[in-house]
């Protein structure tokens, strides 16, 4: 079974390549939402296995979306992987990832292999 991924990012070109590259592996089914304000609605409809959420978006911040997702029964248990263009003080190596407060952070630009590894890891922790 393929992993359903919802990518929320206002960078349309970035979502295009993420969707193409992930789906090329044949293991991921990717939905894209470029409007952050509609992200929660889309997630509740789609109920993906994992949500890839950009932190800096116009209108609403990724962290806040995550909080809103937690508030809904449908999306409450969906793991979230944050995408960030900024580097945290503790420094993730480029394209790498780290965890803060139970959430996984991935720094842009990220290599597709690394992204797939993080998504796999996030979904494997998903309560079945």
């Amino acid at each position: 079974m393929k992993t359903d991924v919802l990518v929320v990012d206002d960078e349309q070109d970035f979502t295009f390549f993420v969707k193409k590259n992930l789906e090329a592996s044949g293991r991921f089914e990717v939905s894209v939402c470029t409007d952050a304000t509609k992200a929660v609605e889309r997630a509740r409809q789609l109920r993906p296995h994992v949500i890839l959420l950009d932190i800096m978006m116009p209108g609403i911040a990724g962290e806040e979306l995550a909080v809103q997702l937690q508030a809904h029964q449908e999306t409450k248990h969906v793991p979230v992987v944050f995408l960030t263009a900024l580097v945290r003080e503790d420094e993730a190596p480029t394209g790498g990832s780290h965890e803060i407060g139970g959430h996984t952070f991935v720094a842009k630009p990220v290599k597709i292999q690394e992204l797939m590894r993080v998504l796999d890891e996030a979904t494997s922790k998903r309560p079945s």
Binding site: E11, D13, F14, F16, F17, V18, K20, N21, A85, L86, G95, A107, K108, P109, V110, K111, I112
Partner: peptide, 10 residues
């Protein structure tokens, strides 16, 4: 970084 991410993905 966003363009870099797009270039990387591209």
């Amino acid at each position: 970084k966003n363009p870099l991410a797009i270039i990387q993905g591209g």
